[in-house]
Amino acid sequence: MNFNQIGLIFKNTVTKEWRSKTLLFLLGVNILMIFLAGAFLSFFNKEVLTDMSLDSLAQKTVGIFFLIINFWSFLISAFFGVGVVRSDSEEGVMAQLLAFPLSRGEYLTGRVLGAWTIVMLYYLLSLIMAIVGVYMAIGSFAFSPGLFAGVLLNTIPNLIVLVIGILISLNLGKIQSFLVVMLVVFFVSISNGLYQGVELSTAFETMTPMRSIAFVIHWIAPHISYWGDNANELIMGNSFGEGALRETAHLLFTGSLLGLVTYFFLKRKEV
């Protein structure tokens, strides 16, 4: 791996993707939401609340903002995932880039890290805007390590969705890929919901053909729901769920598998 080449592709990805009109639109919606919620909160604080502490109110409000932002987080990741490599292929840039002494692994790594960084920046910017918005509304500074950790943790399911988006977009157009990613994320989440924390013996007792498919998906795909749900728990000031060590090992294994499959398909792709 040549880290200079990865760095160049990474910078190029950030330069390319930050201009995304969808991202700017979502940031605009965030600002609007925070502004409206801040105005509502300010009124609520002055006219209705008398006995709740301001710090607690601010914390809960920022948390609720983030639950809403997280709700569409995977949409943003899927959007970047299906576009970041596909657009290179469609515009003929991929052939030009890969004609340099740049391996497909370096290219893929740079593109994934660049797109992931954009998603993370979007989150951090949303966090800052939410905190400032709440501060302006009620005069209390709402920030906790848990909130920050939750926001960072939510970038894990985002990374997974992003890579799934790249993998699918290697063979399908952007719109089809986006729809397929939505379906894949939906099925993975359903599977996670069915089998998260369920003992193997219990799982086999209730096995049906459909459930067996869900069971396989649950074991071979990263547990998007587990990481997303725990990120939300941290954001809301609650503690992290059980099985973190086991889930981290599972994430490392299934995440690497997903990365390798994506690399395999990119390596086979003719440009």
Binding site: K16, V93, P101
Partner: peptide, 14 residues
Amino acid sequence: REKVSYLPEKFSFY
């Protein structure tokens, strides 16, 4: 490809 320069049939960029 270290010492190769390539001009594609249709040169394009962002």
